[in-house]
Amino acid sequence: MKKITIYLISIFIIIMQYSFSNATERNLITQIDDPHIQIGSNFFGGELLVFGAISGRDLLNSDIIIKVEGKEKKATIREKIKKYGIWINDKATLVEGIPNFYAVHSNRNINRIIDKEFLVQEEIGVQNIKFKSQIDSGQLEYIYDAIKKKNKENSIFTENFTGIRIIGNKLFRSSIQLPMDIKEGTYEVSIFFFEDQVLIDSDISNIFVNKTLAGKYIYTQANEKPLLYGIIAVIIAWFAGLIIVGLARVT
């Protein structure tokens, strides 16, 4: 199988010759070259390429964290319980704030880069993603952990502490895997730049994932004009049936 590599972002860090007088010194300026991801019917995963440099600094003592986060969604969680000898679904718990994609890449273990407080605040690292739920059952932690575990297994949540390569002390580069069933929408890319456990600069930009071709068209029609879509599905089936009849008569 030929692997489709999509160069989704080229982030160029423009070397700043001058810093602004009032603001903190900005070292990190990102620019998204082509932030539009197209998913056709033949999409089975791709990669997001992020690279850049920091102005006037060596990356020798620097750390970089890249976080990609998708749109937050809600989900109902049901525990399976054994009843009458079979496994059935128990009552549901509604959980909000689950990103539909989450990836953290860094050049070394994030816990050594910056203190826990910062990681929690910025939701960096799968364990620091915050969910919400209206119901306050004692099981929430267990449910949250299970959601994280399952999403990790499906590569929806990923962490890679060796995912950023620093080349020649000047350039950093990272490639983030996008799963086959990535959802349409806006994704937020945050880049954090640290030196000696201090945040020096950060930048946020967006990428857009679009479903294209037949896939998107069909999905939109099915959801926006469901009745028409159903009728068309039936007409197609009638045609297919008549083709079979035609073939049977020929043979």
């Binding site: 989900a75 525990e79 399976k80 000898g85 496994w87 299970a146 399952k150």
Partner: peptide, 16 residues
């Protein structure tokens, strides 16, 4: 599949 213990004891259904 109904009788043996499922791998995932939690079923997560997305609501968009």
């Amino acid at each position: 599949e109904l009788v043996i213990e499922p791998q995932d004891l939690l079923i997560i259904t997305d609501i968009i």
